[in-house]
Amino acid sequence: MKNKSEKTYSEEHLRYLRARRYHAIVVWTLRIGLLALLLGMWELITALGWVDPFLTSSPSRIFATLKSLYNDGSLFYHIGTTLWETLAGFAIAVFLGYSVALLLWWSETLRAVLEPYIVVLNALPKIALGPLIIIWFGTGSKAILFMTVLVGIIVAIMHMLSAFIATDKNKLLLMRSMGANKWTILAKLVIPSSLPSFISMLKVNVGMAWIGSIMGEYIVSRAGLGYLIVYGGQVFKLDLVMTATAILCILAAGMYFLVVLLEKLLVKNTDD
């Protein structure tokens, strides 16, 4: 048995802990330093006129753009639009994908029947459906939402199905020997044992949801961060493109971080 509440540490162990802490501080300092260096260089070469800020923008111009967007009240409107599309699309794709994967796990026949369709849908570049989506759903948020769900759902299905199928054979045998029926096996074994896969599916789908919503906005939108990027590109306002991209980086990282937080809360006890 491992004793986790060791009270006294040896001198050697304390030295080891100090070294670990020191290492973490070094890594974080370098990470932040690298970002500061990159931003500083970027600012410097544009300020010195080595490159044209009209083409590359610069941190100070991004900050100014951010301020003007905030002042005319459109900053949070665009962020809100994209964030809503992404989060709603993410939630729907995850929920539907998980449900379909459960159905496919339940029925081997259904799985065999639908397999080629899923393979084809997975391989198909969803952007090819752009024109159809515009015609079916118009040019509003609905079309973008549909695109986001479409991009995420297949990944969710395939990821969860393979996790359900990979349920430990011996644990299944054990459950059956105890007289468990399929519902009980699902509730007490398959779903809990696939929790780590569920989290990794969420992580993959965070990226998928942003691909879906931004791609959707490229095709149809009149608002949102993807719209700002496309619009900025068309009128050659690279400051706007860079600003929207920077906001996207922060939002995507934030959403990923939330999933990691969820993982820490939910996945505590596994064998590996």
Binding site: D168, N170, K171, L174, L189, P192, S193, T270
Partner: peptide
């Protein structure tokens, strides 16, 4: 069974 197959969660 061979392994204990305790559910880790």
């Amino acid at each position: 069974l061979q392994k204990d197959e305790l559910f880790p969660w």
